[in-house]
Structure formats: C-alpha cells, structure tokens
Design a protein around this nucleic acid. Structure first.
Length: 999
RNA sequence: GGGCGGUUAGCUCAGCGGUAGAGCACUACGUUGACAUCGUAGUGGCCACUGGUUCGAUCCCAGUACCGCCCACCA
C-alpha cells in the first residue's frame, strides 16, 4: 500500500502508543547490552490535583529524549514514573470538588472518610496524568509506577507499595539521631487551611497598607522631657510628654504586646527606659525595654513587641524573657476560648509581677478583651483603631479644613494614618494572609544535614546546570532555616509519634507528656510498655487522652487497677518531606533491591528552576542524610513555560494552553520538537503555536522525502544497515559525510544537554541538506548507472534521519520505520549510530561548486526577471581543470536545477550576465531578455558588497600591528580571502565593462 | 535592600575575540519525477548606552539605563 500524503498523528499515535505499551519498550533494562552502563531518571512526580500543563509537557519531553537516546545506545535505562500526593493542594482540590457537589464538609465527614475521598481524587487524577504522559510519548517503565503515599494505612486496594514505609523509617531514624525535634515556635500559619506551612510556601506580596501611630501613656501619670537633636547635637524639638509613641501596621496585635522596645543608644527615651506604660484598651502595664532591633531613625524609634504574632518581635521577646500571648485561633479569629478577660488579665498581671508560670499556661491565657473575642482579625483591627481614637490615644496632627457650608476655615486634630505599601505574607495555595502563630510543630534541624549537600555540589559530585542554579542553591543552603515539617492536615503521612504522660524519677507526672517515636502503633505500644511501670492503651485523640488523664488520679486513689493512655500525633508530614525521598523511595528502599543497586544514584534530574529549594535541595540533604549518597549526578534546571507574549499561564488570564489540545491539533511530535528547540539554557520559555506548526511541517517534510524514496523503489528489499553503503557518485559520497556530521553533532549536543542545538542540527540536516539538495540530486541519479548505489544511499540516509530524530519525534519516525523496509526491531530499540567522520573532502568541494553555481544562476535569473519557466543557455568563459571536471560530472544536475538548455564554451557574448564560481566564470547570454539597467544595478550591488569586504581586509592587512600580533593562520586567511575577493571583483568589473559596450 | 539573569532583524531566539545567524513574519515569482504543512529568489541589524583592554570587541572588563526572576523582618 503506497504511503499516505501526510503523516496522520491522531491515527498513528494511538496505534504506536499501544504497540510500545504492549511491548513494554520502556521497561527497566529494555534494549540494554550485556554489561551496559546504567542511565536512570526519576520523573518529577506530578501532583494528583488535576492534569498536566505545558510545563509538564516540556519537562517530560526532555526526559524522554534523554531516555530514548540512552536506550538506543544500549544503555541500561530506567525512567521511573509516578505521582505525588501533594498534601495541601490535593486536600484543597478534594474539598473544592466536595463543595461543588454539595456534599458534607470534611469536618462533618471525619478524617477517615475524608481520606478515602482524597484517595478517589488521587485515582482520578493519576489516570489523567498517566494518559497525558503516554500521549506525549513518554517511554517510562509503566510497571514501576510509584506514588508518594503508596502503602499508607487506609490506602485502598491497588495502592500497595512501600513508599510510606520508607518515609516513616526516615522519620524514625532522623528522630533517633536527633535530626528532628518538636517545639513551640513561631511559624507561618495559614488561617484558611488551618495548618502551619514552611517559609517556602509563603509568598510575600506588596499590598496597600496603613501605618497607625498610638500613644502608650506612662504609668502613674509620669512625664519626661522628649528632646530631638540634629546631627550636630543642637536641640531641634523639645516637649514634655506623658507617653511614648509607637507605630504599627497591625493594630489588632497590640492586645498581645509584652513591652515597648527602644534602641539602647536612643537618648530620646533614655529617661524612661525601665518604666511601665499603660497598654491601651487592655488594663495592663508593660515595660519599656532596650533592644538592638529598633531602628532609631525609623518612625518614632519605639517598637511595640508582640512576641506571639511577629517574627522580629518573637526574637526580641525571647531575648527579654517576655511572655508571648497568643491572640488568635486557628482560623485567624480573635480568641474566644478560656477564662473571661478579667480572670485572664489578672493572672497576666501576676505573671508580670513575677509569679512563676510556664509556656503552656501562657499559651492558654486569652488576653483578648471580651468585646473583640471571636472577631475576624481584620474586623478586630478596625475596632481597635476606632477605640484607640476614641480614647484619645492616637497620635494626631492639626489640619485646616474649609467648611463646605459656611466656607470658613477651621483647624481640626486628626489621627495620623499613613498610606504605605507593605509586603504582606500570603499562603501560596490559599492566597490568604499568613499569620505568624506560636504553635507546637516538628522541625528538621537542617543545619545538621546541610553540609554534605553543599559539599557534594562544591566538589562537583553533583553538577547543577545552568551554573546560575548552582549559585542560587548555595545561597539558600548557606542561609538555611529549620524546616517545619508538620502540617495540620488530614491527607499525608501521619507523624509516627505517640504521646503519653511523663515519668519523672519513677513517678508519673500527668501534666507533662513524653513521646514514643516508632514505625507503627504496635512498636509504639511496646516502647510504652517498656517505659511505664504499668500497662498502656491507645486512645483516639488528644481530647480522649485529656479525659482519660483527668480520670486517672481518682482511679489511682481508689486503688483500682489502672493503666496509662497514649495517643498519636494527629499531624501529617510536609509533602516535600516524602518527595524528598523520591529517588530512593521509588527504588524500593529500605529494601536493598537490585534496582536500588543498579540505578542509584540516578543520572539526571530534569526539573524547573522554581523548585530548586522545595525539592532539589531537600532531596540532596535527605538522600545524603539517609543513605549517605548523592541522589543524582546532574541536575538540569529549566525555565518556566509562558504564553507567546511571555505572560505566566493562569486560569484567570485565560491563556492556559492544554498540551492535549496542542497534540490534537499538531501532533505530539511537533510539540516535542518545539520543546526541544526551545530548551536553551536559562530564561523564560515562550510558547508560540506558530512554532509548533512549523515543526509539524518539518515532520511532513521528512515524511515526504520517505514517500519520494518509496516512489523510486528505494525501500524495495531494504533492510536496516548500520554501515554506510559504498558510494562512487559525488552526491552520494557527500550526503553520507553530511549524515555522519549531523550524527556526531547531535551526539555532542545531547551530551551537553543542548536539546536546542540537537534539534537545530537535525532540522537543518533533514530539511536543508537531505530535502533541499540530496533528493534533487538523486532524481537524475536514479536514471544513471549509479541508480542502485543511490537507492542504497538514500535508504541509509533516511534510516539515519529516522534514528537520529526518534528521541525527538518518536511517533512519526516509528511509523515511517515500520513502513519502509524490513526491520528486525522497533525503531525505539534500534541501535544509535556511531559513524565517526565519513566526510569526503573532494565530494564536499565538488558539491559546494555545484550548489554554489546553481544558486548563482537562480539568483541572477530572478533578479533580471527571467521567466521561471524559460530555459536559458549557459556559456563557460573560463574553467580550471577542477572546475571542468566538476562541471562534467554534474552537468545533468545543474542543467536540471538551474533550467539550462544549451551549453557552450567560449568568449563572453555581448549582453550577458556574468557569474563566478570557484575556478570558473560563466555567462548567461540574454540578448533581448536582459534588462541592462537592472543587470547593472545587480552588478553594482555585488561590487559594493565586495568593495566593503576588500576595504576591511586591506585595512587589517595594512595595519603593521596586525601582522605582528595576530596569529599566523589568521593573517594567512585574511590574505587568501582578499585575493579571492579581488579576483571576484575583477570578474564583475569585466562584466560591467561588457555591459557598458552594449548599453 | 540583597542576589541572579537579560538587552542581537518586525517577532521568538542562537552566536560570543577576526567579514552578523536561524525559524517565523514580510515581498516577488512559481517551472521542476516527494512535499502548497511546498519551491525559488529577496527585503530587513550603529549586536541597549558610555568608557576601558586589544592589532582588532556584538563577544572580555568597568560603569549607566531599562526589563525580568528569586530572596529579605524596617515596626
């Protein structure tokens, strides 16, 4: 059956995809030579939140190119696929879907039932993602598909695996090594999801804010002289004050202030340091303290200190030993729990006066006055400002106003409220304002594990490219902060820690807790049994635990038999804690599997620039901490895919491009080739559909070259040949050399991860060399004695084209492969060529003469408007022996491609166009056809260009310093260049003279 | 505020010491034993600016301007 006129992606992709899947072409080790080196890539696992976007298509195209390239080279390859449970994001998507469907909420449903819902979401999204990857042509080992929560308790059937075991084991090991700790710290709190998040999950966004100025009055009605001086020490302002002025952008937090801080060197406030001020609206006194933190030149120089709601204040409060009163609940509302305000504030006064307390009591005290309790933090802000203004405690300024009715001017005091852009932290998922919140959380002590991760890159054991990524990596790791890994979510790996009452000197202390970190509940209970002098039993949660503990003393007193309750930490781990283990976890660790031995450390990680801290740095730290080895040898970082104008693709802008739609319209190969061509190092990747269309056309071009070959019997009896055929015809020798050159350039480019160079090389070779020239050369050769050799050459050249293009355009090339000759193997498993240098200098030179001459003739014809269909004559004015030989061997070709009728040798006729070629001068007699003026213009243009070049070369050669300083070969090159240009110019001058004779 | 990158043809980008490149777009013409998803020929650049190094700079160095991205606690 003859070939179709064009490649049909829709039909072929489905057919070939099925073929590959059934043959398991991507299985680990498929097509590996015995004893072959390993090459492995772990897919960056997509989140099971939905479907893949263009960034994924780009990222996975590059990985597939690498994997296919290595697999064809006979290496032992593994491309490990899988997905990420993506805790917060997937929980969010599931809740949103539930809300859309009008179902009950997560809390109404309960943890266990909700988790099952998320597993359903996972299943759905996973199916979409795998389908998309397969449509893109990704040749992963699909039988090894992994999931970051496989094997977790409560996982439905079909979700077996041991990733969960690996995660838990790492946690337990790190806990035992003291690399993980729990503590009450100020963390970024997301009031929407009601969970802590890490620093990296916070986006600072500039918003319009305000700065308010409040007066905190000195206790006991005291006053002081407030004096401002200029740089020379001259007094510029002086007044008697009974207050200190503070500024804030977050007035509602003043309810939790523990002090006012001033810089120790700030003379303005020296008289009142150590004194107490009234905290407005709160019936509390707080001290004026000194700390290095306040900047005396900013605002009033005095800062209110709210240790529980600001990261700077937290540090100051810790240094000064101030109590940190938490004001808000998990939803960012002003607290409404605990004792009435009067009771709480009375206790706070006692504590301020020196009454002993502890962290837990301070946290339990609700110092929010009754009228603000339960208000949203932004509502509370408005009310606090209004109340302060009403109390006359706002710093004010005198303004003059014109009464609109009486037109009389009068002065009025108004509170100072500055409009001020402020950087406000937002949750990267929830988009709500993040609240610094004092809570108990788990942390990885990153300082203890960061050094090997830095060293591995410094020493080059792991290479990050481009180099700028390396700098970013160092900068972040050198300034690493503790990593908060606990999340108050339901979807994720539950922290393997159980709590029970503490034993001090053999005595149970019910008010305190101790922890048991163990791989599972049975192990935890066993640890508890070893620890307690009695039995221990598991209770459902913290509330049940508190109830059981409360009942214990009575039981003990009554002499009943009793045992202690323990409960499990309800929190789950940050998603990145588990994705941080992706390289070893997917290979079966902690089991010492053959795959782990074979494919770890992995060869390359291909991922986006944006994820270097979240994932790359953490994988480095975690793998080195857990198995004491680097996770990958090379990290290839790429930019983010944007729309054609460089705008970020977002649903709200409506410029999101779905990769499946692109594949439907242009085919997967066109998208893939465009991705490769765009993959220059660094920068933004602009997605332009026109470019995709261009590469679709490129595929058609190759297709039609193969179709042309088919029409000429090239494929009859053809079977795959690794070695180039022996050829005598110049064109055949030339294209064989060009093919080998392209192959080695592609090899070099891919070795250096220059996908763009590789794509460019292939495009230019297939279109510019094979289709533009070789196919044309072959036409006359098919009618010559060299026909058989030409068929063999063309078959070989096109085979090589398919092989070299296969990693980039797998569907089209596999389809062609199957339609063209007898194939021992699928193309996906065909040997990658190692051709060496097959260039034939003589053939190259001769073909350069031929193509040059043809282009000259065509150009001349077009410029003097010779009708395209008209055949013309050619006269050789002079021919060197080499040029004569080249002419004679290629006459048929040149005649055909340049539309030449008669050929003669002799003197240049009058009224002719003159053309130069290496070692030869030709003329086209066009009496009657030629437009003298136009031809003169053409010659003049050429002469002008030559003149410029000759001028430049002469200038250089006449510069005495050039000959002295420049390398000899550069000088020689300039000389021979000059000679060639001058020769050419002389020919054109002669032509000009002849032209002048007739016109 | 700190760090990193960019500025080359109308657009998107390569190049990076020795005569400026590609694709797309544009213009003209379409004859050829595959291809109109095509062919042939063309138009189009003070390589951001200012200095320096060099025989020679788009390329190296310094500075300036503008544009990105990342990080950052000025209340």
């Amino acid at each position: 059956m003859p070939m179709e006129k064009t490649f049909n992606p829709a039909e072929a992709e489905a057919r070939i995809s099925k073929l590959w899947l059934e043959a398991k072409v991507g299985a680990a080790g498929a097509n590996a030579r015995p004893g072959a080196e390993a090459f492995s890539i772990m897919i960056p696992p997509p989140n099971v939140t939905g479907s893949l976007h263009m960034g994924h298509a780009f990222n996975n195209t590059l990985q597939d190119i690498l994997i296919r390239w290595h697999r064809m080279q006979g290496h032992d390859t593994l491309w490990q696929p899988g997905t990420d449970h993506a805790g917060i994001a997937t929980q969010m998507v599931t809740e949103r879907e539930m809300a859309k469907a009008g179902n009950i909420t997560r809390r109404e449903m309960g943890r266990e039932a909700f988790t099952l819902k998320v597993w359903e979401q996972k299943k759905k999204s996973r199916g979409t993602i795998i389908g998309q990857l397969q449509r893109l042509g990704a040749s992963c080992d699909w039988d090894r598909e992994a999931f970051t929560m496989s094997g977790a308790p409560g996982a439905p059937a079909g979700e077996e695996g041991n990733f969960h075991d690996a995660v838990i084991k790492v946690f337990v090991d790190m806990y035992n090594k003291g690399l993980i700790y729990r503590g009450k710290r100020l963390v970024n709190w997301d009031p929407h999801f009601e969970t802590a998040i890490s620093d990296l999950e916070v986006e600072n966004i500039e918003v319009k804010g305000h700065m308010w100025h409040f007066k905190y009055r000195l206790a006991g009605g005291e006053t002081y002289e407030y004096v401002e001086k200029d740089a020379e020490g001259n007094v510029t302002f002086r007044e008697t004050r009974d207050y200190i002025s503070i500024a804030t952008t977050r007035p509602e937090t003043m309810l939790g202030d523990g002090a006012v801080a001033v810089h120790p060197s700030d003379e303005r406030y020296a008289p009142i340091v150590g004194k107490m001020v009234h905290l407005p609206l709160c019936d509390r006194l707080i001290p004026i303290i000194t700390d290095e933190y306040p900047d005396p030149t900013f605002g009033s120089g005095a800062v209110k200190i709210t240790g529980a709601h600001d990261f700077n204040d937290y540090q100051v409060a810790k240094r000064a030993g101030l109590p940190m009163y938490r004001l808000m609940d998990t939803q960012g509302k002003m607290r409404a729990d605990g004792a009435p305000y009067e009771v709480a504030v009375a206790r706070a006064r006692e504590i301020a006066a020196g009454s002993p307390t502890d962290e837990n009591e301070v946290d339990s005290l609700n110092l929010v006055p009754e009228k603000y309790r339960g208000l949203d933090r932004f509502e509370a802000r408005k009310l606090v400002v209004a109340d302060i203004n009403a109390a006359g405690l706002a710093v004010t300024v005198m303004v003059s106003e014109i009464d609109p009715e009486t037109h009389s001017e009068h002065l009025r005091l108004v509170p100072v409220v500055e409009d001020k852009p402020i950087m406000q932290p937002h949750g990267d998922r929830s988009k709500v304002v993040i609240e610094p919140m004092l809570t108990d959380q788990w942390f990885v002590d990153t300082a203890k594990i960061v050094e090997p991760a830095l060293e591995a890159v410094r020493s080059g054991r792991t290479k990050i490219m481009p180099e700028s990524g390396e700098k970013t990596y160092f900068h972040w790791l050198e300034n690493i902060e503790p990593w908060c890994i606990s999340r108050q979510l339901w979807w994720g790996h539950q922290i393997p820690v159980w709590y029970g009452p503490k034993l001090v000197d053999g005595q149970l202390v019910l008010s305190e807790t101790t922890s048991f970190c163990a791989a599972d509940q049975i192990a935890a209970q066993s640890d508890a049994l070893d620890y307690y002098p009695c039995d221990a039993y598991l209770v459902a949660d913290r509330e049940a635990y508190a109830k059981a503990i409360a009942e214990l003393p009575a039981k003990m007193a009554a002499g009943e038999t009793w045992s202690v309750p323990i409960y499990r930490d309800p929190d789950v781990l940050d998603t990145w804690f588990s994705s941080g283990l992706w390289p070893i976890g997917t290979l079966g660790w902690p089991e010492q599997t053959p795959e782990l031995q074979r494919y770890f450390p992995t060869s390359v990680l291909v991922t986006g620039f944006d994820i270097i801290f979240f994932w790359v740095a953490r994988m480095m730290m975690m793998q080195l901490a857990v198995v004491d080895d680097i996770p990958f040898h090379t990290v290839y970082l790429h930019g983010l895919v944007r729309d054609a104008k460089g705008k970020k693709m977002s649903k709200s802008l409506g410029n999101v491009v779905d990769p499946l739609e692109v594949i439907d319209e242009y085919g997967a190969d066109a998208l893939r080739f465009a991705n490769a061509a765009m993959a220059s190092l660094g920068g933004v990747l602009k997605f332009d559909p026109q470019r995709i269309a261009g590469y679709r056309n490129f595929g058609t071009k190759l297709w039609n070259a193969c179709r042309f070959a088919e029409m000429n019997g090239v494929w009859e009896g053809h079977s795959t040949q690794a070695q180039a055929p022996k050829a005598t015809a110049t064109a055949n020798r030339w294209i064989i050399g060009e093919t080998a050159r392209a192959a080695s350039e592609v090899q070099q480019a891919l070795t250096e991860f220059r996908f763009d160079f590789a794509a460019d090389t292939l495009y230019k070779f297939v279109w510019g060399k094979v289709c533009d020239w070789y196919v044309e050369f072959a036409k006359p050769l098919f009618d010559s004695p060299d026909a058989a050799e030409t068929r063999a050459t063309m078959a070989w050249v096109l085979d090589q084209s398919m092989i070299l293009l296969h990693p980039f355009m797998p569907f089209l090339t596999e389809d062609l492969w199957g339609q063209t000759g007898t194939r021992a193997k699928l193309l996906v498993h065909t040997d990658w060529p190692t051709l060496g240098d097959l260039a034939d200098a003589a053939a190259d030179q001769e073909m350069a003469f031929v193509t040059g001459l043809i282009e000259e003739i065509r150009s001349a014809r077009a410029q003097v408007h010779v009708p395209a269909g008209l055949k013309i004559d050619l006269v050789a004015i002079s021919l060197s022996p080499e040029a004569r030989a080249a002419w004679e061997r290629n006459e048929a070709l040149i005649r055909r491609l340049a539309r030449i009728e008669g050929f003669s040798e002799g003197a240049a006729p009058k009224g002719a166009i003159t053309l130069g070629a290496p070692g030869a001068t030709f003329a086209i007699p066009l009496a009657g056809l030629i437009d003298i003026a136009e031809e003169k213009a053409r010659l003049k243009k050429s002469l002008d260009k030559l003149g410029k070049e000759i001028g430049g070369l002469k200038g250089r050669l006449n510069n005495p310093n050039f000959a002295v300083s420049a390398p000899e070969e550069v000088v020689e090159e300039a000389k021979s260049n000059l000679a060639a240009r001058e020769d050419e110019a002389a020919k054109l001058e002669a032509a000009m003279t002849r032209l002048a004779e007739i016109g």
